[in-house]
Amino acid sequence: MGEILHDYLPVLLIGQFPNGPLGGLALTLILSVLGLALAFPLSIGLALCRTSPYRALRLPSTIVVYIVRGVPLVMLVFWSYFLVPVLVGQTVSAFTTLVVTLVIYQAAYMSEIVRAGIESLPKGQTEAARSLGLNYGLTMRSVLLPQALYNMLPSLISQFVSTIKETSIGYVISVHELTYSASQVNSAVLTKPLQVFLTLSLIYFAVCFALTRCAYAVDRRIEKRRAGVTSPVESTAHDPLLQS
């Protein structure tokens, strides 16, 4: 295994770059970040539709979310692979296909996180904002979403972890991400498939484990801050009304 790492680590990390296309772990991370970054605003839009009082918004968004969540990722890849070229009228790169797939898939899942984040806030927050004359949009933007997104941070990091793992589906349409690079290494070495794929697993694990720990740490921080809400700091010493 040391030998494989020694000879092929650059391929696993960055693919053929700089002599060929960027690939390996670097491409995997780019795909994940891009997928999540594009899916994020979309997921907020979906979540707002899902929590909307208007049926005309709620119904279609709910259907989309349920369909995407009820279909295996590889199906979505095939659909994008064959459907997107038809829709845009020209060939589309495998990279774009995968990004489109990941964005749709992640948006559906993340919209549920966002929706839960909004719905778990106390109703009094909305009432207080609306009582001050803030309209729906301002209430969302200034009061509800900042709190919901903050509370959701750990879930969002977890979602990033799953996205990293899901990019491996790019293998089936020959996107040169980490899994694809590993299989190329395997073809070159030929005799050590177990070692190659063990290395592959370890790389995925190292990245995902680090991020999971990070999510846990953020979660702890938020818990601590929340705990502060239930036991307010006593600070009445300089309080003129109490002294009067």
Binding site: G124, E127, A128, R130, L132, L134
Partner: peptide, 28 residues
């Protein structure tokens, strides 16, 4: 929304916005 600016409402549970400082709560 315009009408509500003319009626101050104070809740049993305060309902301050926890992600804002006291002065920002008042300014918003």
């Amino acid at each position: 929304n315009h009408f509500r600016t003319k009626v101050g409402f104070v809740f049993q549970q305060f309902n301050l916005f926890p992600h804002m400082s006291a002065v920002d709560n008042v300014c918003l």
